[in-house]
Design a protein around this nucleic acid. Structure first.
Lengths: 196, 196
DNA sequence: GACGATTATGAACGATGTTCACTCGAGACG
DNA sequence: CGTCTCGAGTGAACATCGTTCATAATCGTC
């Protein structure tokens, strides 16, 4: 059977992603070590490199899952706020983003902490997942600014996403200006509710 | 003379900071290696550890300079925009922040990329430098919102700083949503000009 | 100039990601 | 059923790190 070895490799791949994700959840991206991972998976150290090019590729696989879960969380909040005013919808979505980041801090941080060297080109799902998020944001935005050009709207979308991301990032980072959860929500509301 | 050894240590300390800064400028924080640094400085590897607790402490010293220069750049733009409307002052200051980040990307990134383990408590100058920046922001803000409480104003200040930081961060990061310089300026203006 | 104390040195240590010469077992073939 | 082959799996070895510490060099003092 030719597919046998293929299946075994796929199983190992899945197990490694699972264990790596658990390790990142438990101790952050920097606590993920090749040797410990191999031991946890009950495989040889070199086996990891038969399934992934390097550790970065493995982390990117984990990030793929995380991005999916993040998108799902934001989408759920988006659909749960159909009747709200555009500004409030943006706020609800941003709070969903905050919730995800707060409850899965290590996984969320890994999305941005993984180093992408120049040769490592950004995977397709990365950009498309981001595009999906942007589409969710631009919908309420186009209601707030009906006459805005598509290009300007696109910029505004990314600007607001980046703003919320910045607020969440620095808000959760204790050393810069760490702040209680509910105050982060206030900051998001302050910025977004004044957009009009 | 008891001060002799002290002066020599201070000189070494200064030289190491200088060389480390140059290395970060040239190749980013991750390119800073203890051995290469010692060779550049013409000193022994262990000599570094007679002047700094560890590499992180050295990077923090470099960050101290960077923070100073960053504050100076923002302050200069603040003072050069005395007559402008509050919103425009905020935009000018934010553009100064963007300019600094764009022109000293590696040094600026090192400010946030250095890992602060739990025992490494944040230095005083770190918080006070940040406080200085915040004070600059809150001044135009208090003109826009004269009736706002001090506490709410403080939150708004940090919210806006975080927003601009997020826009600059993701805007300069090619993999997420990298964008030409002038478009980043547009994004900043979009968010800040709508604050009223 | 000799001696004790202090400082600088760099080989050694422990991690870590990655590689590659070898092993070994499953399937093909006689 | 025995043998043979070939490729996938293995883990010891390698290259690099930051950091330490026994030892050597240097300095201050009498």
């Amino acid at each position: 059977m030719a597919g046998k070895v293929e299946a075994r490799r796929a199983a190992l791949r899945e197990k490694l992603i699972e264990l790596a994700e658990a390790q990142i959840v438990a101790g952050g991206l920097s606590s993920l070590k090749a040797r410990q991972l191999a031991q946890d998976a009950g495989c040889a150290l070199g086996a990891i490199y038969t399934v992934f090019d390097d550790m970065t590729a493995l982390v990117l696989a984990v990030n793929g899952r995380t991005f999916q879960a993040l998108g799902q969380a934001v989408r759920a909040s988006f659909e749960g706020a159909e009747g709200l005013a555009p500004n409030d919808r943006l706020i609800v979505m941003s709070n969903a983003y905050l919730s995800f980041a707060a409850e899965h801090t290590h996984l969320w941080r890994a999305l941005f902490d993984v180093e992408m060297s120049t040769d490592h080109n950004v995977p397709d799902w990365y950009m498309s997942a981001l595009g999906g998020l942007f589409a969710l944001i631009s919908q309420p935005l186009s209601q707030i600014f009906p006459e805005m050009e598509a290009e300007e709207l696109s910029l505004m979308t990314r600007a607001l996403f980046s703003s919320v991301h910045g607020i969440v990032l620095l808000g959760l980072e204790n050393r810069i200006s760490g702040v209680p959860r509910d105050q982060i929500e206030v900051m998001i509301a302050q910025v977004l509710s004044h957009i009009r």
